[in-house]
Design a protein around this nucleic acid. Structure first.
Length: 647
DNA sequence: ATAGGGTTAG
């Protein structure tokens, strides 16, 4: 026999059955009931914010219906009041509606809204007639609450009980996979298993189900899988297109994202890009640092009237900053009439990216002053900004203020920023002490920051220690081995250099090739670092040789201390001359007009020789050169770099 | 009745 029992988490305080003290007298209430149906009275009381009173009237004065309760549940959600929700639930039970599967679904959704999962499950457990709606509702609640495993096990039970899943079940189940704590390998296995179920039940061509599949594969980096699914979709809409564009944008394939966007516009009339599409498109432009593309997209945003949508403006701010145009980013930011924490974060990181640490901290303070609470990302941004310019004390203060003033507990990412801040400034001992005293597990980002700093300051011993940890944490990241090898090379420990190189090869890992690119007349040209000259870059190479020769007379000395081969000086110089950034600079010199800033992007940190080379080029050719490396911008002008040689 | 895509960091 199922009876209503109050579980520990469901604290229903039974309201005293006294006559309500209300502006409405009971008489008025009865009258209203005679004239209209009770829903209207309840609704009007709810609209006045008087839900408690509505509930008091309910059993005495009227015969509530399913609809009445549905309305009451929705008002609790609208008013965001869990305690009212509990009251409504209690009334539902008292008035004999507790076995209504429709209301059970609504109650589960309500508890899900309040993230009160135990109560949602309680409703589920007490409901005898579990329709597919009831099952779906609880699966959804569990998936949204990050309890993926429970959602999946419920799905298993659903199958065992012979309840046929429907097209609504699968998007929830796929989300459950994402919100589970499976390791990525068993997760892929799980997603494939669910994918199999979807195929077996014939839901794969359903647009919502297929779009969710695309998204889930994309989230885990299975771009080819996602693309295949997308290609095979018999029906697509703006959401499917957006999901696929986002997939490319997020998985390091920005050109394909832009290509797909163009295809979307060309191929379909019905699927018009919306704000969500544009946010991903802008993200792709930012990844490419393609200022020309951003301006085109900005125009599109204006034409479509999407320029008042906050996430779109936020994306514009951060994209302009990432494309080297801090001025436009600031202009867009200044004109905003409403700003959320993301807007501020975008501007703070924009300043940081361009080496304006002091300004970034000022924006941070303005943000606090305007009453916006900083998020954990705010601190990553502002600490990163301090780190770029070496504001060590300011950064340390901000780090301390996280807990003391803002109640935000530093994550591994924040420690990574702090370690980077100290490490870059050469305070390696202090940095390692921070790591040793961390209360949470220092992840790869933390050791990575330390290793990066060791590489800059040529600290072999600590670099070995950091790499030792990193190899365990991310065994396939070739970058860690390379940083260690670079450190050995600078210390002239050639035996160690070759040992690390062999270690790399033995695991089939490869150094990520240096790649630089430049946008000329809205077209992107990319260059890869080469050890030898080929015909395609002959002209560029000739120009470089000539430049270097002339610059050497003016004092340029190629910096070759980090070349990973034990060669003589001229051979080393030959190698650094093939760096992709120099090729891009030469290409830029040839293909842009005098007075025009040359804008170059690079996938790695700028090497010291390219840095000093570019400084000389700006002095020598009287050109401005803007280089974005993997961390930040360098504004080269008249022989000086905005980073002040601190990067 | 229930469903799908997006923003800020390093």
């Amino acid at each position: 026999m199922l009876t209503f029992q109050t579980p520990p988490t469901l604290q229903l305080s039974f309201a005293p059955k006294q006559s309500p003290q209300i502006a409405f007298s009971s008489k008025n209430a009865s009258l209203a009931l005679q004239n209209s149906n009770n829903n209207q009275l309840i609704q009007s009381l709810c609209k006045q914010g008087n839900l408690k009173q509505a509930l008091r009237i309910l059993p005495n004065e009227s015969k509530p219906t399913q609809q009445t309760y549905e309305f009451l549940i929705l008002s609790c959600i609208g008013r965001n009041s869990l305690s009212d929700g509990l009251d409504v639930h209690r009334h539902i039970v008292e008035n004999g509606f507790d076995q209504d599967p429709f209301l059970a679904t609504k109650l589960i959704n309500m508890y899900s809204h309040f993230n009160s999962i135990d109560n949602a499950r309680y409703v589920f457990d007490k409901t005898r007639e579990r329709t597919v709606f009831v099952w779906n509702a609880l699966i959804r609640a569990l998936a949204l609450a990050g309890r993926g495993e429970e959602a999946l096990s419920l799905y298993g039970q659903m199958n065992q009980n012979g309840i046929p899943s429907d097209r609504f079940t699968y998007p929830y189940i796929l989300k459950a996979c994402v919100s589970s704590s499976y390791s990525s390998i068993s997760l892929l296995h799980k997603v494939k298993e669910i994918h199999g179920h979807i195929l077996r039940h014939g839901f794969e061509s359903h647009v919502h189900v297929a779009t969710t599949l695309v998204d889930v594969y994309a989230r885990y980096g299975y771009v080819a899988q996602a693309a295949q699914l997308f290609d095979e979709m018999p029906e697509r809409n703006v959401v499917s297109w957006s999901a696929m564009i986002a997939c490319y944008a997020k998985n390091g394939r920005p050109s394909e994202a832009l290509e797909l966007f163009r295809e979307m516009i060309a191929k379909t009339q019905s699927d018009v890009p919306n704000s969500v599409t544009m946010v991903s498109v802008l993200q792709a432009c930012a990844a490419l640092a393609a200022l020309g593309q951003v301006k085109l997209m900005h125009g599109y945003v204006l034409r479509r009237g999407l320029d008042s949508i906050l996430p779109v403006i936020n994306a514009l701010v951060s994209t302009y900053a990432k494309c080297g145009c801090l001025e436009i980013a600031l202009r867009v930011f200044d004109r905003m009439n409403r700003r959320d924490v993301v807007s501020w974060n975008s501007m703070i990181s924009g300043y940081g990216l361009h080496g304006f640490g002091v300004e970034a901290v000022q924006v941070f303070r303005r943000m606090i002053g305007s009453g916006i609470s900083p998020s954990s990302i705010t601190f990553v941004s502002v600490l990163g900004a301090c780190s770029h310019i070496g504001l060590v004390d300011e950064g340390k203060k901000l780090f301390k203020s996280m807990v003391s003033q803002h109640g935000i507990f530093p994550s591994a990412e924040h420690y990574a920023c702090l370690v980077d801040l100290l490490g870059r400034a050469g305070r390696l001992e202090e940095a390692i002490r921070i790591i040793e005293e961390m209360r949470i597990e220092p992840g790869p980002t933390v050791w990575g920051s330390l290793l990066g700093a060791c590489r800059i300051h040529c600290n072999v011993e600590l670099a070995e220690r950091a790499t030792h940890r990193l190899i365990k944490l991310e065994p396939t990241n070739a970058g860690n081995y390379v940083l260690l090898a670079d450190t050995y090379a600078e210390a002239k420990k050639w035996d160690e250099v070759s040992r690390v190189k062999k270690l790399l090869e033995a695991q089939g890992l490869q150094k990520v090739p240096g790649c630089s690119w430049i946008e000329i007349k809205k077209k992107i040209y990319s260059f890869i670092s080469v050890d030898e000259i080929n015909s395609q870059i002959e002209q560029l190479h000739a120009l470089l040789v000539q430049l270097v020769m002339e610059m050497k007379e003016k004092g340029y000395v190629p910096e070759t201390k980090f070349v990973l081969y034990e060669l003589d000086q001229s051979e080393k110089e030959q190698i650094v001359l093939g760096h992709s950034e120099k090729l891009a600079v030469a290409f830029g010199l040839i293909n842009t007009s005098k007075g025009e800033t040359i804008r170059i992007s690079k996938n790695l940190r700028l090497c010291e020789d390219c840095h000093s080379f570019t400084k000389f080029v700006t002095k020598f050719t009287e050109r401005d050169i803007l280089v974005r490396d993997v961390n930040r911008f360098h504004h080269f002008r008249d022989g000086i770099c905005s980073c002040g040689d601190y990067w």
